[in-house]
Design a protein around this nucleic acid. Structure first.
Lengths: 226, 226
DNA sequence: TTTTTCGTTCAGTTTGCATTCATGTTTACG
DNA sequence: CGTAAACATGAATGCAAACTGAACGAAAAA
């Protein structure tokens, strides 16, 4: 999943970026309002963290303009402690949640997990499809109760497909959400990962949870149903 | 584990600091309210000891503000004997336990152990994973009933991983909780300790209790389970 | 003092894994 | 059928992350 971090203070921005990279996100950064506006309108992020106290174009303004452009990804704003007004304005501008600075990473992490989960339309951190269970918080997958040993990208690919189970996901959509902007557009990585996933999830090839929709992409489903 | 001691009286502060250093904690100190507020919001401590009778911003106030910021680490407050009110206010502000001054170190030690254990979500001082058993109070580890000879840091590293068994712990997280703020960020100590731990716990390399999650950190887990 | 213990650094090596490439297989459609 | 495009797959590559053994040096112990 791809996240945009908008924060002018370099140290804090880096700290957040490092943390969420380690947590498995693809992270991009913007240091000021205009940059944030550009990046947010150019790329399909899955989530954004925005400091409202930006120099120049304020964070609230950034969020407002994103929303006016029809951007729907969840936005978490960072407000200075006691700045009641910022918080209210931010939420009115279309932010989904807020955390006051100084904050503790676990708190930000928790709220981001919640936002991300909600935006995927899930009630819980755990999703099951027959014998296949994903734990979004722990980033683990089990088949028939046995944990699978997946690499970061294998897991990312599977999570993206599974949280959109039943719908067709194109290869471009996958690369847009699993890679940052400088991705080689004519690579076949996705095909390779799909292959490896199929082999790891279902070595006997009996479940066939990932169907190919020729010319359109892939669809995660179980059973013969549709 | 990293602890913050907030106490204005230098002699007492030093006594506590020395005691808990020897007990294996990484100890940092604050001498007044503002300093305590700053440090508590800046660093991810695992526990704090706060004297309520601070000049300037009172200890109760410090705890209240920490809690408002979403800080969750356990807090033990020190109150003057007979100062009934302080104790009540402190607990209401979000402290977890109290000790009245003058106190006996063993008592403080015992309460801190209890708080720390509870915050790790453990019911007992003893934790087992298959043949591996840690005794948090005695800071000892045994494999198949045979005691291991671990150094302070080796034990600390193992304890941190084991009390979070099943989840991925990043190297950054480890250094944040096992070292104080002036830690050389591009050191590979953690890797070295992980290596030594693996060798000591499991010389035949059959249990493989510490798994590497490339790019993310380490995960303590036994068998294929979870 | 000398000796030992341990935390830390460093350099060299290994390994995991994302990515590419070449080739094989399926499918749609004329 | 035939053929071209889309997809699958096994092996090869390259690089950064992780591992490791040795050495250093500070502090504790003897």
């Amino acid at each position: 999943m791809r996240m945009l971090i908008v924060e002018d203070e370099a140290q804090l921005r880096l700290q957040l970026a490092q943390h969420f990279s380690e947590a498995g996100w693809v992270v991009e950064e913007a240091a000021d309002g205009p940059e944030a506006l550009y990046m947010g309108s150019e790329h399909p992020y899955d989530l954004a963290v925005v400091d409202v106290g930006l120099p120049g174009v304020s964070g609230v303004e950034v969020v407002r303009q994103w929303r006016e452009q029809g951007n729907t990804f969840p936005v978490l704003i960072l407000t200075a402690r006691g700045d009641w007004q910022d918080k209210v304005e931010g939420l009115e501008a279309g932010a989904d949640d807020y955390v006051t600075k100084p904050f503790h990473l676990p708190e930000v992490q928790a709220r981001i997990n919640a936002l991300h989960r909600r935006s995927a339309g899930l009630a819980s951190d755990r999703v099951s499809f027959g014998p296949i269970t994903l734990d979004l918080a722990a980033r683990t997958v089990a088949v028939d109760g046995v944990a699978l040993d997946l690499t970061t990208f294998e897991y990312n690919t599977l999570e993206y497909l599974a949280t959109r189970a039943g719908t067709v996901v194109s290869k471009t959509e996958l690369t847009e959400h699993l890679y940052d902007q400088d991705f080689d557009r004519d690579s076949n990585v996705i095909e390779v990962f799909i292959g490896r996933l199929r082999k790891k999830i279902d070595p006997q090839n009996t479940l066939k949870p990932i169907k190919t929709v020729r010319g359109a992409g892939y669809r995660f489903v179980l059973d013969g149903s549709r």
